[in-house]
Simulated scan of single mutants.
Amino acid sequence: MELSSNITEIIACCILIFTSLLGNAILIYGTWRCITRRLPTSFALIFSLAFAHVLKNIVVNAINIIFSVGFPPNPVICKIRIFTASMTTKLEIWFTLYIAIFYCVKLHRVIHPLRAPPNSKWRKHHLLAVFALWVTSISVCCPYLVFVHDMQSLTSFNDSYTVHHSFLYEDCDVRFPDAITDLCYHQIFMVVTDLLPIVVLLFVCGRILLLFREHNQATYGNIWIGHDASETEVLRASKVIVFLMHIVTALWVAHFVIVRSIAHVNLWYWMSTLLIVLFSGYASISPYLLMLINYRISLQIRSLSSFCCKKSNMNKSPSGGQKAIPDSSPAED
């Protein structure tokens, strides 16, 4: 049973890594091809979220595979794992909230147009905010690189542990020398910095749903004149954000509840596998939904897929011709 559980964890990690790397690589490539002169705000947010997904799967799930193979937990590796896991989780939640607020404001402008054009300096502020979020997440999680428990006591304890033991969530955990620091920082502060943005994200998505209701009422009242391609993109992106909100909230809450009660549910052999799926599921699912946010990214991905299909057909039939793929030059956001 123990061997079957470890194999299941390895298979789950490999699937999550492959799915996330494939989706985020396509997302980053399609987004990069759409950049013409400068980096739009929406693209900067997508890049940041995609890089956080890739970092989580490459580092955290790779360490999970190393431990599942049979290598004993190492304090240095545990520090890297807990730091990367906490940092990337916060970045995922924060940037998802940022994208939701960004498109909520744009949706409000679509339904209630401004009389004056928007300030172009906001783009610089957004880029500074993206950089600040990265610096803040690294700074907040730095104590995990300093404090870690003594592995020898747990290793000797696990030798006589007859029940299936989740070393990924118990052995590879932090122990602060001061109980007050552990309570205030690890148990309260780190949870609040994840939970509070999720609560705000729920309110933002609720505001998006109310704006959609106003949009439908304006349409049925023959007040709505119509919308162009950019407005269609905002409407589609807002719908995707609502789906992302449900996914990230459900996965985070389920993972948090199981981790907090892991001492009571540790009898289940595949509990570690479930925790791995809940922890990295958002990093593997969201890239495929983020491809739908911007219509230019969707066009680039379709062009890439059609190019790959035509190239494979050319390899099968050398005499066949290949049409040139039109290069789109999209306008900036």
Rank of each mutant, 00 (worst) to 15 (best):
Y103P: 04
L201N: 04
N222Y: 05
V234S: 00
S238P: 09
G206W: 03
G321D: 02
I35E: 12
V60M: 02
K239D: 14
S280Y: 12
S261Q: 14
T219S: 13
A229I: 10
H186S: 14
L133T: 07
L114F: 08
M151E: 14
L97G: 07
V76G: 00
G226W: 10
S48K: 05
N222C: 12
M190T: 11
G226C: 05
V257R: 03
A25C: 05
A250V: 10
S303Y: 08
S328V: 11
C184R: 01
F102R: 04
V110M: 13
M245W: 09
L21R: 04
Y295T: 09
M87D: 10
A324S: 06
L304F: 06
G320C: 12
E214M: 05
Y103H: 01
R175I: 07
T84E: 04
Q187D: 13
T84P: 06
V130P: 08
R296Y: 11
M314F: 08
S306D: 02
L289F: 15
I301E: 15
T84F: 06
L196I: 08
R109M: 09
S303T: 15
T181M: 11
S230L: 07
D171F: 15
S329N: 11
I293S: 06
N61C: 04
H112Q: 14
V105F: 09
F95M: 04
L275S: 05
T8F: 07
D194L: 15
F147H: 00
